[in-house]
Amino acid sequence: MGEVFTNGRVILPDNIRDNVDVVVEDGRIVALLASEDAAVVDRRYRAIDLRGNYLAPGFIDLHVHGAVGRDTMEASAEAFRAICDYHASGGTTSLLLTTATAPLDHICAALGAIRAGKIPQIVGAHVEGPFISREKAGAQNVSFICQPTPDTVARFLGYGNMIKRITLAPEIGGALDAIKKFAASRVSLSGGHSDAWDDEARLAFERGMRSVTHTFNCMSSARRRGVQRVAGLLEFALSEPAISCELIADGHHVSATLMKMLYRAKG
């Protein structure tokens, strides 16, 4: 049995449409029908009246450490289920469970548990740290920050395409080679927890970095180098059209003015 969602404002990639019904079978959208054509839908479909509310695609969250007191680093199916259930209640239907800076064995244990999991919402992992800047560690544990070596890069690559995204600081030793190797394996590279100068950020971009993590937070910005004021990772990201900017838009990490500025630059 399927469903047909009626009387809603349907959010599409390029506009918001009224007077359109959405037909779903086995959890997948199979048709969009003009409301006047809805009568052709088989009576076996259960009609759901949205009463003028919005109908949006499920949200995709690329950066999820946990929820309701549970954490990705627990590396347990029970924790993952609790995290996914909580985020589903807010409309998130796909997410990347995100690790934190920790001993490599602990990170790999979490990655192994994610790979072994059977929860459809979990589409992969986001590795945040340990390849980050000590100066911009934020809430990450400074004790376990390290540089990417050929061995650690190979260890992460051993998880195949399960690792979808890695946040690292492009200015640290070994980062540029790591970015090139990860990008060649179709892992998305994001600059974050970084004290990079403009030229260091550009070198990372040239090797495959295409996003930045939690824009404005734990990120270098314009400062003097000699007599000249030079951009940091923040300004590089804002000025480069091919860089996507992640934002924690919770009203606590970033002010409304900064969110508006980012929207003007990237929206």
Rank of each mutant, 00 (worst) to 15 (best):
R134Q: 10
E74A: 03
L258W: 12
A137W: 14
A169E: 12
L104W: 09
S188D: 14
V127S: 09
G117H: 10
R186W: 04
I122A: 05
G232N: 10
P148D: 01
M261W: 03
M162E: 06
V64C: 04
I83L: 01
L233V: 09
L33K: 05
R165N: 15
L203A: 14
S220W: 13
D151V: 03
I114H: 07
R134Y: 11
P120K: 15
G129K: 07
E171G: 09
L203P: 13
D105V: 04
H214V: 00
D177P: 00
S76H: 01
L234C: 13
P241W: 06
R207S: 12
P57G: 08
D71W: 00
S221M: 13
L111Y: 12
I243N: 04
A82D: 14
E74K: 04
E25G: 09
A82E: 06
D49G: 15
M261V: 07
G129T: 02
P13N: 00
L104H: 06
K136Y: 06
R70L: 01
M261Y: 08
A249F: 15
Q228N: 11
A242F: 10
D250C: 00
F216L: 00
G69I: 02
A183V: 02
F156P: 01
I16L: 10
S185D: 11
D198L: 15
L233Y: 05
E235Y: 03
R81Y: 11
H63D: 10
D71A: 00
V142N: 13
R134K: 15
V24G: 14
Q228M: 06
R44A: 09
A100G: 09
L104M: 14
L96K: 06
I172R: 10
P150G: 00
N217Y: 01
S94M: 13
